[in-house]
Design a protein around this nucleic acid. Structure first.
Lengths: 255, 255
DNA sequence: CGAATCCTTGAACACCTTCAACAGGGGTGG
DNA sequence: CCACCCCTGTTGAAGGTGTTCAAGGATTCG
């Protein structure tokens, strides 16, 4: 695993880590859960030993047992299309939940792979459901999180359906920057844990295009990029680029 | 409103329609709710008078009050991007829920517009939440539905990121065909309630491309299309086209 | 009947992809 | 410790798919 100045190592060996001590408390499922109820929640959480880069949290087709909360590191989720190609469906940072798309189908619809050394909290879903009657804020929060997930997917649909290559990469970097900032990391310098291949796959672009746009951004002094290390110099420019301001054609707001 | 042989008129004037009598019972939120509990659920449902074509269920930015279940007709949801362009995020058929993306944010993130005369069940969300303790299957079912929504969005991401124009339209028509079939309508002949503009917007294509692909499909005898009326002749061909079998380039499953 | 909207078709262009080749790290093994 | 190799990332050139621009036809509705 590469050294990564932006992602400090957590105290991984400490197996028993309470939600209330977790730096991600505000971002994760326990939001709104009372002190008294936290114990109930914590009792069902399995804290696995850290997952190494390339290892799986779960794989597509496996029976659905648990959802996972990322504690540190990062996870990529992807599906295999019928002809065996990979479609990256998301990158998950600390505090984010993985596996939500499997609840409805009983089987995992995607594969979750660690992009670096990653630690997660495993939440057995059956046990989680059983807590709902005792902790009503739990299902409320879960539904809220899933609602935001739907919202996120919709912005992604806009990105894929309407945006140019530059707009896509700018939006992507801004998303990463914001999310890292929320988690206490630097929002203007960070290391990408995913390859250009993954980025391109996720953004609906060829690897070469991702590479080219990166160098274009660098030429325009918007950022500096060296392999996986990104330093954003002009956040405003990035924002301007991302909110596509192409001249819109006459677009009758059809019936 | 145009005549539509594939969508028979429901008995709209009858205001009091019980879930248990609803033909959509199996597709909608009440799945898994016991007979005894149905009354509780039905009591909070507001059944509005039918919404006319072009009218709104809700608009972007409005405070979130209710989610809606489509009873008959169809609804288009869309967001306005920062520069005022429209992004269609979905088309909703009978039995499907609308407004789920607003739960997390407190405000509607999209606008829902009727594509034809449409009737809906309005479910005030606060009251719905209050029922959860009495009817535990309600939140379970809601989470399940939202999970499927996430799943659906992911296939759409694949469509937008990886598929060609032909593959997109074929997938879209198959989706419509399947969903209409599930609802008791013909799966090989139906009328589109949305314009080419909306379809193109949804699929990330220019209107002209949608039109061209339609005629190409017609030339290949896959279907007949006359304005909004679609007759599918070769479902197999459509399926073959939709599951893109382009020669994949070397695609190292980059860690 | 006329206006507006929706849909279709044609031609030129643009953006991104594909193909190809090479450069630079990082890891492994000698 | 260096050489080597593989993988990742970069850059160039050609090509294709879909967009844009433009114009005309069809349908609906006032």
């Amino acid at each position: 695993m590469q050294k990564d100045p932006a992602i400090p190592q957590f105290d991984l060996p400490r197996l028993r880590i309470a939600c209330r001590e977790c730096t991600l408390f505000q971002l994760c499922l326990p939001v709104g859960v009372s002190e008294a109820d936290l114990d109930l929640l914590e009792n069902i959480i399995k804290r696995r030993r850290p997952v190494q880069r390339g290892e799986y949290l779960f794989q597509m087709g496996e029976p659905f047992e648990s959802i996972f909360a990322v504690r540190s590191g990062s996870v990529k989720t992807y599906t295999l299309t019928e002809d065996g190609r990979e479609q990256v469906t998301g990158f998950h940072l600390p505090g984010e939940l993985v596996g939500l798309d499997a609840i409805g189908g009983g089987r995992h619809a995607c594969t979750a792979k660690a992009l670096e050394t990653t630690s997660v909290c495993e939440l057995p879903y059956n046990q989680l459901e059983e807590l709902w009657s005792r902790i009503p804020s739990l299902p409320r929060q879960l539904v809220r999180i899933m609602s935001k997930e739907v919202l996120h997917d919709q912005t992604l649909m806009t990105l894929l359906g309407k945006k140019s290559a530059e707009e896509r990469l700018a939006s992507y970097l801004l998303s990463l920057s914001t999310r890292l900032g929320q988690r206490g990391f630097s929002s203007h310098e960070f290391n990408l844990s995913m390859s250009r291949n993954d980025i391109g796959n996720y953004l609906g672009l060829a690897v070469e295009t991702v590479s080219r746009v990166f160098t274009r951004f660098q030429d325009e002094k918007v950022l500096t990029v060296q392999r996986r290390n990104v330093r954003i110099h002009d956040l405003t420019a990035l924002r301007r680029i991302s909110s596509y301001s192409n001249i819109p054609r006459a677009c009758p707001s059809a019936n």
